[in-house]
Design a protein around this nucleic acid. Structure first.
Lengths: 349, 349
DNA sequence: CGGCAGACGGTAAACGTTTACCTTGCGCCG
DNA sequence: CGGCGCAAGGTAAACGTTTACCGTCTGCCG
């Protein structure tokens, strides 16, 4: 079976206390020779501390819990990856639990994590809801990332939606557009309101007045983007560009434009948001703003690990900026674009 | 702090042994009255066993480890979801580790999991590689799911690729096609060879001869599907339908068809594989074969949990069948189709 | 030369369970 | 009525760590 600290201590001819001290880099003085002996012996014997025993003693487990509504979402996984990678640097692993938008499941998850002596919790894309009191009694540090709804909670990491929207709109303005439609997401999402703020702020910065007719609303889905674009195209003074709240709605908008016999970007330019897989594959490929999910994951892990190490985090809320990816749908100079998916017909037919 | 078994025992006026016995449903006889008292008291006090202590004692942790190459892959997450959901029914949680196609990381992951007294390991989409000997000394049960490459290992769950390919080809044949091109994936993948087998078997069943010219190869990416379709369209005797090894290559193939001035499905019908998000959104929406990822996850969890419970699993390898999703790209009777994304222009422009 | 500080290391308790083994009491049968 | 068997429950060891506390030895200073 696995080699224990006892056996390692016997092999090194010291007590288990000493072994524990060198393995955990304790300040307690240990002779250089013994330390070295223990270290090499540990390596030779392949000693691995039993983490169950350790966490029984220390009430820590080098594990952080991630609670998310559904792990099977394109947004979540990349964030989790960021969290994992950062956590791994400090020897932590992650367990992720899907709460299915169900407060009861979420509470149960918190309890489960707590009874496993988890060190801290990250709420990813999920709202704290009724979790408050449960969290209180679990009294573990917790942090939010990509929180979708309002909450008065302390530490959280979110994308800088205002900045992202400004990037998109600024780009369109730079291409000469002055009437820019916006397809907003549902009102209750931060992403919607913040992107709208960025949209109008950027317009204002360029002296373009805000026109409420140009702002429509979808529900993040393709179909709603289609409907919204139909409305925009029906306007007396039609927009020459559309900024969609996400790539899915941008796809819908482009379909509406096609169905109206128009072309993208010649007649109407389109910019999306999220940089989902479809943005790259779509024809025309979509100019879009990235959601810096991986970086957000890293950032939130960083904060939690800091909390666990006893630092008090520097900022309550950190915002991470995405970047604009220029492709075909906006009509920018091809030199600025990402290389298109299929450059040209490669062989004569 | 958390209530311990000691406190619960004191409250109930019994010894901790008795408490432990009723909580773990041990066969050891316990009077109905005491049992009831303990149970209600446990509930009232909100007793949660300390899992660290339990696993120290039992060398089990109600945790299963999932090792995958990259959690951020559209295939993986849905499978993980299936595993999680099934595992949860038995009170297990999952930790997933991304091994980044790096054998060293994978070995390290196995060790890490072992030192955490994990109960079993699921390898998802990853090959065992040099993991063999590491696994041997960790001696935990392990199972494979969606294994990509050959291996002589025991328990595994894979999609029934032969069946899926037959579904696709049968459908095309049913629509009257006799010259059906196939865009294969890279040779080293099971998915490629098995789908090819299904393709030719189904042709044979309908008395259609195998024509090597109709089989091309891509690398799963959009671009390669484009190139492959260009080749197919250049054939003297052009195929009237193309079966692509995955949805991405199907998208590429359709782009090639468009660029040749042809229409899908009128001139060439196309069927994909995987039922990725893009299949639904693409125009024309793609007929495709689902990869039953969620079910595969459930199945593999089922096997592992069985192993952990002491049953010997019934079959070494279980294959899960996907199903055909009929959309626009194959030209089937609209009545058979999934409703299209955007049924029609909803409002007059 | 006495004593003290610090370096180095050991002892043992504790963390919260599970479980092998033991005790008690009661009913029943020969 | 003695003894056996079984139901019901208790005792205590063990799991592998960490860590507070306690030696011991050496060197150095007054």
């Amino acid at each position: 079976m696995a080699v224990t600290i006892r056996e390692l201590a016997d092999a090194a001819g010291v007590s288990i206390a000493t072994v524990s001290r060198v393995l955990n880099h304790k300040p307690h003085p240990v002779g250089a020779a013994t330390r070295q002996r223990i270290l090499t012996l540990a390596d030779e014997l392949g000693y691995r501390p039993n983490l169950a025993a350790r966490s029984l003693r220390t009430e820590r487990s080098s594990t952080i819990g991630i609670i998310t509504d559904n792990i099977d979402s394109p947004h979540t996984t990349l964030m989790i990856r960021g969290i994992q990678d950062r956590a791994k640097q400090d020897g932590y692993i992650c367990v992720v639990i899907s709460a299915d938008w169900d407060p009861a499941v979420e509470r149960e998850a918190i309890h489960d994590l707590a009874s496993r002596s988890i060190d801290g919790i990250i709420f990813a894309e999920t709202w704290h809801r009724s979790a408050n009191e449960t969290l209180a009694l679990a009294n573990k540090p917790f942090v939010f990332v990509h929180r979708q709804f309002a909450s008065e909670h302390t530490y959280s990491v979110t994308p800088d939606e205002v900045y992202g929207a400004r990037l998109a709109v600024r780009h369109l303005i730079g291409l000469g557009h002055r009437r820019i439609g916006y397809i907003n997401g549902p009102q209750e999402y931060y992403a919607s309101t913040d992107r709208l703020r960025g949209y109008s702020a950027e317009l204002a910065d360029h002296g373009i007045g805000f026109d409420a007719d140009l702002v429509t609303r979808g529900n993040w889905q393709v179909e709603s983007g289609y409907d919204a674009a139909v409305d925009l195209l029906a306007l007396a003074e039609r927009p020459t560009a559309i900024f969609a709240g996400n790539d899915l709605m941008a796809a819908g908008a482009m379909y509406a434009i096609f169905d109206a016999g128009q072309h993208v970007p010649q007649d109407v330019a389109v910019v999306g948001y999220d940089n989902r897989e479809i943005a790259r594959i779509f024809r025309p490929s979509m100019t879009t703003v990235t959601l810096p999910l991986y970086e957000m994951g890293q950032a939130v892990a960083q904060i939690l690990l800091g909390l666990l190490a006893g630092d008090s985090a520097s900022a309550d809320e950190v915002k991470i900026r995405g970047r604009l990816i220029i492709r075909e749908s906006c009509g920018a100079d091809p030199a600025l674009r990402e290389p298109p998916l299929v450059a040209a017909v490669r062989r004569p037919l």
